[in-house]
Structures are given as structure tokens and as C-alpha cells.
Design a protein around this nucleic acid. Structure first.
Lengths: 353, 353
DNA sequence: CTGAAAGCGCTTACAG
DNA sequence: CTGAAAGCGCTTACAG
């Protein structure tokens, strides 16, 4: 075959059969070179290698899998609204998996679409499924039951308290306990809740921690906390924090400290209070959550909670990889990650009205 | 078979053969029900459906593909350092693709690892490959050449000026022209560059726009711009902006306006200037880029540039989907997206020293 | 209306 | 050292 003819035909090479024909050897031989098996003439190897770089041929991964090769894929479900910490977890997890030779199939787990997502993962024969974030409880529990029935390992990152789920989660109760204790030490006794749901959803969620901290000092939860959830549509972003802070400022008996669900709400609160001519921490103390980079850049800088995402993801990867090798554990594994309070300028002594 | 025996055997069902045996029908028949083909007895259909929900069986997607079904997968390469705008583009693109029945295989295109990533995509027989961000020029051009040779459609989002690449990109030159004109109108004549490389890399990058705006008023670029890139390691984050602003403030002939590569640097600059007791925009005007949510929450709020990500991604999806249907276009398609200047409080009249 | 056979792109015994 | 045949899990002509 002339060089030109070869170059021309290379575009049509889609299978080892085509490729073997191009090289002029049997498929078996080509396959052996591709898989680096021993006992081949050097000349044969060179021949195949050259053809490989000439054509850029890549064996079909789907056919390889059919012949028994592992798919080396992990399915990752993320929440519909991708928050910055969720993105960091996703990126960190994918990096760790990639280092172990696993690639990630990432899908958004939108409410109601969970079944389809997991079935897609199963049809792709992923080796495990990871959920990152908080989901509709019943839906995700049904998915996990499905995965267990299939014998496909799973792991939940963040959403704590799901039935039969292997879980890695920040100890959010401990985090809020630390935040509230820090503020109690400053003399605060009334706390405005910003974006934090009043009903505790699990043994380690934020509300549990707030309760515990207050109770330990003999304080009554209902007396000490204020919620204005009814005033604004809950959006958990900067603008929501800005508006909500304004509403807290206009209360007759306004709290002295504001506890925000995340840094966005807290930074929005700083802005909202600033617009009203109020000073932080003189008039209000404000605490955020997640320790995003912006928290060190606001004026005043923001007291917040570090999630230790690297630890979370390292733990998650370990649990996940352990499941791939070993037979499935019947008992769900639960790991809590310790948070870290980062004290900055936005919290200080309670004002005396 | 007893119900118990059935339940027990369902765990081992991995193929249509197993499943057909479980139902008690031929594989052909089962396949027909699974694919909703006409001409089947209702009783047969019901039988299969029931078994389907009993076992949760999912056909192997890899085998389906081997039989000629499209993979319906798109490979997406993102930059190593995932910036917030890149995340938004990624999420928006995945959403649009999913609505069209396409799933996304996402990989980080780390320097030096590009070849491996693209080969993985090709082995998975993705229908197209998308690159989001800015990459090492030679490496990505080699990958694009490889994709073209394979007849696999591609699209580059952001990185402008790559050889033979179908590209959708913000018109960054126009964006900076708008920013500089806005500041020139305020009387500014000296501009500090924060994270913006001095050497223009393409016909539509930022430096080109800065040049154009100055030239249109008969101003000399070298006289009007100051770069302190040598003083700090370039990190493009908040802290980098904070330090760099401090350095600009301490210059003998300090500029009156600061142009930042992104909002992080700009917000960091606001903080850095605040720490030195300088006021914005009285002492310095500061302009960001990307219009992230935080830009409306700083004090002062930040003048910046909106990327119109929704338009970018809608355009990208259109170009991409067009390539899937039609035969490959020889001429690269280039689309520029118009930016939008968002004027807020951080820019104002130039101080007079 | 249902089933046995061929074939997609690979690899791995098994022959030569 | 190299090649022809079987088989992974599916679907689609082709028979019955």
C-alpha cells in the first residue's frame, strides 16, 4: 500500500480488525502488542507501534469491558444547585479517583430524576456511586437500596442520617456548638438564624449543635433564637443574606448575633448591615460557614467554620476504594469529620441595648 | 420457581440471558419488550415488566453500543484550576446536553496529561469533545488536530485563537475597551494591571482591548499602564489581589485606577486598600471581571464585566449539536460573545495628586 | 407471536 | 512466534 493510500485509509480505522488489516497482521497479534504481552518479535512490535502513531487508533473501551475488563468508572451524583464547597469536594474526589485510575461519570441528581441517573450509572456498569450534597430523603434512600440490591458500592458525602448508607459527613452539630459557644463567651444571648432550618433533621445537624450549646449553659432555645424565614424566599445566596439582615436589624427586639448557613449569606448580611449604617461586630456579630476565601477579604473579615474538605475527601476515597476491593459490608460505615472554628473580626462582645 | 428462589437468583442477573432465563422467555422476546417494539402479547409484556421491577435489571450500555447504538456521551475537558465562571459554564453545558439526552464525561485537562484524557474519550467513543478554559497552546492544538483526524467533533469555549479550532469565546478585547473607556471618561490616565498579562496572546484578548482604547484617545500604552508582576507570585486569587494592591499603593507614581483579571483579585484589592486606610473610589478606582455575585456585596460594590455565560453556553451547545448531525465542517467556526460592563461604586473620578 | 443464529469489537485459550 | 475460533451482552434479520 502506498503511503498516501495508507494515510487515506487511516481515517476509516474503527476496530482492531481494520487496524490489523492496515498493519498486515492478525488481530490476535495486534491485540498482544497493544496489551504489552511478552513473546513477540521486536519487528512486529515496532510495526504495530508505528501504525499506532500513524493512525491514532484507540481500542473500543466498550468491547474491552465486554471481554471482562473492569470499567474503572465511578458515578458521581451532585446536587442540583452546585455550591462552592460541593464543587471543591467534587474536584478533589475526581482527582483522587483519577490517581487510582478511575474515571468519573458526573450527573446532576435533580429531584425526581434520581432514578434515571442511577439506572444510567448501572447500565454503564460503574464500579461505585457517590452522592455529594443533600438530597430528597426518600428518593436517595430508595436509590441506595437499589444500589445495595445490585451489589454496587455507594458512598454519601454530606447528607447524614440516611438509612443503610455509607456516609462521610462534617460534624455540623459540633461546628455550630463551637460557633455558639464562641458567641456565648462574648455575652451573646439572642441569635438570629439565617437560612438554618429550625427543625433538626439528624443527630449531627446544625440545629442539634445549637440546642446542645444553649442547653449546656441552661438557656432556653426558643427564647434565645429568632427566625425570620417567613419574610424572604429562602435562596441561600448573598442577596438573601443582605435582605434578611435588614429584616433582623429592624426587629424591635433584635438579636445581637447572626448565625448564617453559609459564607454567602453572612457576607450578604455584612453588606446589608453596612447599608443601614450598622457596624459589625459593634452592633451585630456575624458568623458564616465554610471558610471560603472571600471570608478573609470582607471588612470586617468573617468568623466562620472550616470544613476540612481535604480530610473529608481523603476519608471518602478510602472508604470507597476499600469497598471496591473487599466484599460488601453489611453494616453501614459512618465517618464524621471534625470542623474547625475560624475566628476573625466579625464576632465580638455583645452590644448592650 | 418459588418466590424465595426467584428473589435469591435476582442478585446474579447480569445479562439479558440471565434475565430471560429468570422470566422464562427467549432473549429475543425480552429484548423486544425492553425496546418497546410492537407486536407482542400483552401477557408477555406484563411478565417482563414485572420481572424488570423485581430484579432491577438494566441492560449493559456497552453491549448496546457495540450493536450500533450511539454512546450519547460527550467528553468535557476543564482546566486544572476550576474557576467559578468555568464551573458555571460546565454546569450550564451539562444541563443543556442532558436535556438533549447526552451525558457528560468530565476530565481535568492537566498540563501534560491532555493526550491521555483525549485518548480516554476516544476509547469511550464519545460523540464530541469540549474544552472549557485556557490551555497550553501547543498541547491543545495537537489534541484538536487529533480529534479532527478521527472525525470526532470538538468545541473550545474561552480559549481564543487556536488553530483550526471551533471556538466560542467572550470578546475580552471589547470588554477591556469598555472598562478602560469608562475610566478614561472619569479622567484616569494611569492604570495598574492586576493579573493581566502584558503580552497580547490573540486578536481578542484583554491587552488588545486596552491598547485599542488608549490608542483611540491618542495615549501611549507604556506611559499609561503599570505592571508589578515581578513582586508577587501570580495566583489570581483574593490574597494575590490584596498584596498587589498594597504594592501599587506604595509606588511613588501610583496609578489612579486598577484593572483586575477577575473579581477575586479586585475584591482582594478592595481589602488591601482598606487595610492601608485608602478609600475606593476616592484614592483608587478598581474594576473587576466576571460579575460574580460577591461583586454586589462588597463595600464599595464592584464595577465589573458580565460574561453572559448563558449566551455563551447556548451558542456552544448549538454549535456542538449542529456538528453531531451534519458532516464535519472544514472551516473552523468562531463565535464571539458580547460582554457587558456593569458599573457600580468602585469606579469614579480620578484623584488629583 | 416467539425463537435460534449471526455479528458488533475485543481478548484468550487453543492450535500450529 | 503467529493465527483461527469462541465468547463477552446485546439486537436484528431470518425462520417457524
Amino acid at each position: 500500500m502506498s503511503k498516501a493510500a495508507k494515510a487515506k485509509s487511516s481515517a476509516a480505522i474503527r476496530s482492531t480488525a481494520d487496524f490489523a488489516r492496515y498493519v498486515g497482521l492478525a488481530r490476535t497479534t495486534v491485540s498482544r502488542v497493544l496489551n504489552g504481552q511478552p513473546g513477540l518479535k521486536q519487528k512486529t512490535i515496532d510495526q504495530v507501534q508505528r501504525a499506532l502513531s500513524e493512525t491514532g487508533f484507540t481500542p473500543n473501551a466498550h468491547a474491552l469491558h465486554l471481554k471482562g475488563k473492569r470499567t474503572s468508572m465511578v458515578g458521581i451524583c451532585v446536587e442540583d444547585l452546585l455550591t462552592p464547597p460541593a464543587v471543591r469536594k467534587l474536584a478533589a474526589l475526581q482527582k483522587l479517583l483519577r490517581e487510582r485510575g478511575l474515571s468519573s461519570l458526573i450527573e446532576v441528581f435533580a429531584p425526581g430524576a434520581g432514578r434515571e441517573v442511577v439506572r444510567h450509572f448501572l447500565s454503564m456498569r460503574v464500579e461505585a456511586v457517590v452522592f455529594i450534597g443533600h438530597f430528597h430523603r426518600e428518593e436517595i434512600e430508595a436509590r441506595i437500596a437499589e444500589l445495595i440490591a445490585h451489589g454496587t458500592p455507594h458512598l454519601v458525602i454530606d447528607h447524614f442520617g440516611l438509612k443503610n448508607a455509607h456516609t462521610v459527613s462534617l460534624d455540623r452539630a459540633k461546628a455550630m456548638e463551637d460557633v455558639v459557644n464562641h458567641l456565648l463567651d462574648f455575652g451573646h444571648r439572642t441569635f438570629g438564624l439565617m437560612g438554618i432550618a429550625r427543625a433538626p433533621s439528624s443527630r449531627f445537624d446544625r440545629m442539634t449543635g445549637i440546642h446542645a450549646a444553649l442547653k449546656a449553659r441552661g438557656l432556653d432555645f426558643d427564647t434565645c433564637t429568632v427566625s425570620l424565614d417567613h419574610l424572604h424566599e429562602r435562596r441561600n445566596d448573598f442577596e438573601y443574606g443582605r435582605r434578611l439582615a435588614g429584616s433582623f436589624a429592624q426587629q424591635a427586639h433584635r438579636p445581637t448575633a447572626l448565625l448564617a448557613l453559609n459564607d454567602e449569606i453572612a457576607v450578604g448580611a455584612l453588606r446589608g448591615l453596612h447599608e443601614l449604617g450598622l457596624r459589625v461586630p459593634r452592633d451585630f456579630s456575624v458568623a458564616g460557614f465554610n471558610n471560603q476565601d472571600v471570608a478573609a477579604m470582607t471588612s470586617p473579615t468573617l468568623t466562620t467554620v472550616e470544613q476540612n474538605i481535604a480530610t473529608t475527601i481523603a476519608t471518602a476515597a478510602e472508604l470507597l476504594l476499600g469497598q471496591l476491593d473487599a466484599p460488601m459490608k453489611a453494616r453501614p460505615m459512618i465517618k464524621l469529620i471534625a470542623p474547625e472554628l475560624i475566628v476573625r473580626e466579625s464576632t465580638g462582645p455583645a452590644r448592650v441595648d
